[in-house]
């Protein structure tokens, strides 16, 4: 790692001031992605601004039928505390391993937007809102390609607001070496329609599978998507799985998620 100054501000506005005054300063959530990146010298921040201890960045509360989760909440805290949205709590409880879940945060995962990460699928399928120090960003306007988001430099995710669906489920096909998703599908059924988000598969990052959403909105059962398929040309291909394999998994996992959501 290159040397940097470690800064632990007490408020969101102090953190934003440091980040905006120095374009080489970078936010630190749980460090479960950033510290490995720094070890490889793939980044050289002047300052790391730790968000973990900031008041108002953690905690889970229920507001008007939605769950509002602080941006610095760890995966373990969400797994324990998001009982009001069981599919989300289950997703958080299966990220990485216990030690990773005790440090890694919701905001860090979303800011990083790894194409194989779990939370992006939950945020997109739930139609959640990403709340920052400056504004609110709808899920459909937040993700922007591989590792890309519409966050501005120095903008901090302070919370995420998840509308709680009538039924939901996340199916993760684990890539056993990394423990990320080889493919993951999140299905959420709301009174006004079904949303399906796919992670680990798209060559442009997390995406909504609109044909499946239409079919499942008409009829919420696994067979409703029989005959639908994903174009393999837009899938990721690597040594863990071909495009065709990933495209196939998207269909299989969608059916499993619907079956599980039906209980």
């Amino acid at each position: 790692m290159y040397e940097f100054d470690f800064i632990r501000p007490e408020t969101i506005s102090d953190a934003v001031t440091v980040l905006q005054d120095d374009e080489d300063a970078q936010a630190l959530g749980g460090g479960q992605t950033l510290i490995p990146v720094l070890k490889q010298r793939l980044a050289q921040p002047s300052k790391l601004v730790s968000l973990a201890q900031i008041n108002g960045m953690t905690g889970i509360k229920s507001v008007d039928g939605a769950l509002v989760i602080g941006g610095a909440s760890t995966h373990a805290a969400v797994a324990m505390g998001a009982g009001g949205y069981p599919a989300l709590a289950a997703l958080a409880g299966h990220i990485g391993d216990p030690a990773v879940r005790n440090r890694g945060t919701l905001g860090g995962s979303l800011a990083n937007n790894d194409p194989a990460a779990c939370y992006p699928a939950a945020v997109l399928a739930s139609g959640a809102t990403v709340v920052t120090n400056a504004r609110e960003i709808a899920a459909d306007a937040y993700f922007d390609g591989l590792f890309g988001t519409t966050l501005e430099d120095g903008e901090i995710i302070t919370a995420v607001r998840f509308p709680v669906p009538e039924a939901a489920n996340y199916q993760k096909f684990v890539q056993p070496a990394s423990r990320f998703a080889l493919v993951g599908v999140y299905v959420a059924k709301f009174a006004d329609g079904v949303r399906v988000a796919v992670t680990g598969a798209g060559d442009d990052g997390v995406f909504r599978w609109s044909e499946a959403e239409e079919a499942l909105t008409k009829e919420f059962r696994p067979d409703a998507i029989m005959g639908l398929s994903i174009n393999p040309m837009n899938m990721i291909e690597d040594l863990h799985g071909t495009r065709a394999y990933r495209a196939h998994l998207v269909g299989v996992l969608t059916k499993r998620a619907v079956a599980a959501a039906l209980g």
């Binding site: 470690f6 632990r8 460090g31 479960q32 510290i35 490995p36 790391l48 730790s50 973990a52 373990a76 216990p98 030690a99 990773v100 005790n102 440090r103």
Partner: peptide, 18 residues
Amino acid sequence: VVHVDGVAVKSCTMLALE
């Protein structure tokens, strides 16, 4: 793995100052 405030963490992926 060590415990920090009672929970398991990977000490190679946490800064001493944290």
